[in-house]
């Protein structure tokens, strides 16, 4: 187990270094930031001053090292736009994003797994077909379409729900559904397939031959085994939720999270914030993957006790 965790830890460090380097390189490749910070019509002297101020006159290697160094000063540099430390700008965005992520994940799991089981067990009746049809429908709808559609119906026509902000529980409803709609559909389909796969295996017949009730067979023997494959997909899906989903959905609902911050700083060319915003999201993805990896070893004793 210790060996396994050491290896997992090492993997995280290497991945993290790669991400930081990529975030740095991507910014450098996107052109001259000074034009965006100060606009056109600068005198050459002012321009040189700014270039020196932001350290852009130094070699790429020096800039890279300085960038790496800024991890250790606790502030991660200064936002071009807000003139505040990047660490502060990002920190205040973490909690709202996390709230939305947790709510969406909880909703996804609470709906998709039972629905997937139902669709597998009653696959030949209308119940299974209905679940799969719905899942198929939602799988085809991108989250921004779902978001806009919900705003139209529930805010504009019915005037039930607020569109922007994150003050009350009512604010959570639409963003959470918009974030998780696609995932619920995807995970329902996946859970169904994983359950069908497991329910066709020999040990399920053994469980029935013991005289167990069907619910015991399905949950204790079926779901417990299917959870191994389901877990691996949840990891990928929640990670994509954290990265891509939040950017789109937070922007639409003006949710004060990291996703919205990323979009805004990209438009405003606020590179220090953008760099560390990307890194923050990447860290979130890494943490999610690590948690799923651990859960995976818990779920599958063949990994837990194997030579891993």
């Amino acid at each position: 187990m210790l060996k396994y965790m050491t290896r997992a830890g090492l993997k995280i460090v290497i991945t993290f270094l790669a991400i930081v380097t990529l975030a740095f390189a991507a910014t450098r490749l996107s052109g001259d930031p000074i034009n965006y910070i100060a606009g056109q019509g600068l005198t050459q002297a002012d321009r040189d001053l700014l270039v020196t101020y932001y350290g852009l006159d130094r070699s790429i290697l020096e800039q890279y090292l300085a960038f790496m160094g800024s991890f250790f000063d606790g502030e991660f540099g200064l936002s071009f736009v807000e003139r505040r430390p990047v660490s502060v700008v990002i920190a205040e965005r973490i909690w709202p994003s996390l709230q939305l992520l947790l709510a969406s994940t909880a909703l996804t799991l609470a709906l998709a797994i039972p629905l997937g089981i139902v669709a597998a067990v009653w696959r030949k009746s209308w119940v299974g077909s209905a679940v799969m049809t719905l899942a198929f429908l939602f799988y085809a709808v991108p989250n921004f379409v779902l978001a806009v559609f919900m705003i139209l119906v529930f805010s504009y026509w019915l005037n039930w729900l607020p569109v922007v902000g994150n003050g009350t529980w009512a604010h959570f409803l639409m963003p959470t559904i918009a974030m998780s709609g696609l995932l619920i559909a995807g995970l329902t389909r996946f859970t169904r397939n994983a359950m069908l796969d497991v329910l066709g295996q020999d040990f399920i017949r053994t469980a029935r031959a013991k005289g167990l009730a069907e619910t015991e067979v399905i949950l204790r023997h079926g779901l417990r085994n299917a959870s191994i494959t389901i877990l691996s997909v949840i990891g990928l899906q929640v990670a994509s939720l954290a990265a891509a989903g939040s950017v789109v959905v937070e922007s639409i609902f003006a949710w004060p999270g990291i996703g919205e911050l990323l979009v805004r700083s990209a438009i405003q060319r606020d590179y220090p914030v953008l760099q560390f915003g990307v890194i923050a999201v990447s860290i979130a993805v890494l943490i999610i993957n690590a948690v799923v990896d651990l859960a995976y070893t818990w779920a599958d004793p063949r990994i837990r006790l194997g030579e891993a």
Binding site: G211, A213, R224, P301
Partner: peptide, 25 residues
């Protein structure tokens, strides 16, 4: 009624010992 018979009055052993046991239990 069958559930009271299965595994109790009539029990069954299958061919594949490798796959007939639940791997995670």
């Amino acid at each position: 009624q069958m559930r009271r018979v299965r595994g109790n009055r009539i029990a069954m052993v299958f061919q594949e010992p490798m796959t007939s046991l639940n791997p995670v239990m």
